[in-house]
Design a protein around this nucleic acid. Structure first.
Lengths: 138, 138
DNA sequence: TCGATATTGAAAATCATTATCATTAAGTAT
DNA sequence: ATACTTAATGATAATGATTTTCAATATCGA
């Protein structure tokens, strides 16, 4: 029932809870793969017929702002979103079915420190993403 | 003079070497930060006035196909390209000036193997990218 | 319940990218 | 060097995704 938590988050941040937002939130929160705005629109309309595509874009924008979802970058495009895992997590995506799994990658600190030393950069953020085949698809 | 090598690559793969392509190749090859098609267009026109934006898109497409450039994913957008480093390398980007540095991240294998074991995924590819401030900007 | 105002969906506008097409130019064969 | 085949070009139009506009509606605190 994490969808209710998302709606609470919206409300606590001064946004109203509407039927359209419910449909979007329930659609995205339930998905185990990254979904595009158009997919959210199609799926969301099954829950709330009057849902508009523009509202999907606007709601996704707010969910991203509240760190409830994140944009997923893939070779084929970067317009899909998925719910955020707990804490700092990275994504593992199935190249066949799109299924997403989260993992922690905190073992990266030694590598990052070493790069910082070698390059003189101050490193603030890192992206790590793995691609492969999930247990079902392999 | 790596630009000449790129043009040779194009030629060896059956593509013609034209003034427009020279302008694009020289612009992208020389840049130490990721450049968008529009930026390539503007910069390239200083070398070859008649250059068209469409040709920029088409040339970038071919350079990517030949693995001479790669698309750079960033929070602000994913339409920029940068020349490929040698071998398997990762990117470190300055959040202020865009300056890019390459680094190798082969120490990732233990982490990747561990994730594969835990999740049951067969992992084929990985993306690692760091963001921070370069020595000049910090 | 009321009322201020955030939110909505439709339509139009914008922006990036791709397709069309007649013209030009690269590069091989002569 | 010249001719010729055909890839490549740039202008324009078409497409597709995202954003803006706006009048109508619905949320939610008072």
């Amino acid at each position: 029932m994490s969808a209710e938590l998302w709606l609470t988050q919206l409300h606590e941040n001064g946004y109203r809870v509407t039927a359209a937002r419910r449909a979007v939130v329930e659609t995205v929160e339930k998905s185990t793969r990254a979904v595009t705005p158009l997919e959210v629109y199609d799926l969301g309309r099954k829950k709330y017929r009057a849902l508009g595509l523009v509202t999907v874009y606007r709601t996704l924008e707010k969910l991203e702002e509240l760190h409830l979802i994140q944009r997923v970058h893939q070779p084929m495009g970067c317009q899909a979103f998925i719910s955020m895992g707990q804490g700092h997590q990275h994504l593992l995506l199935c190249q066949n079915c799109g299924q997403a799994a989260f993992f922690e990658g905190d073992d990266l600190n030694p590598l990052i420190n070493s790069i910082a030393r070698k390059t003189g950069y101050q490193i603030n953020e890192h992206w790590l993403q793995l691609f492969g085949l999930c247990a079902n698809c392999r």
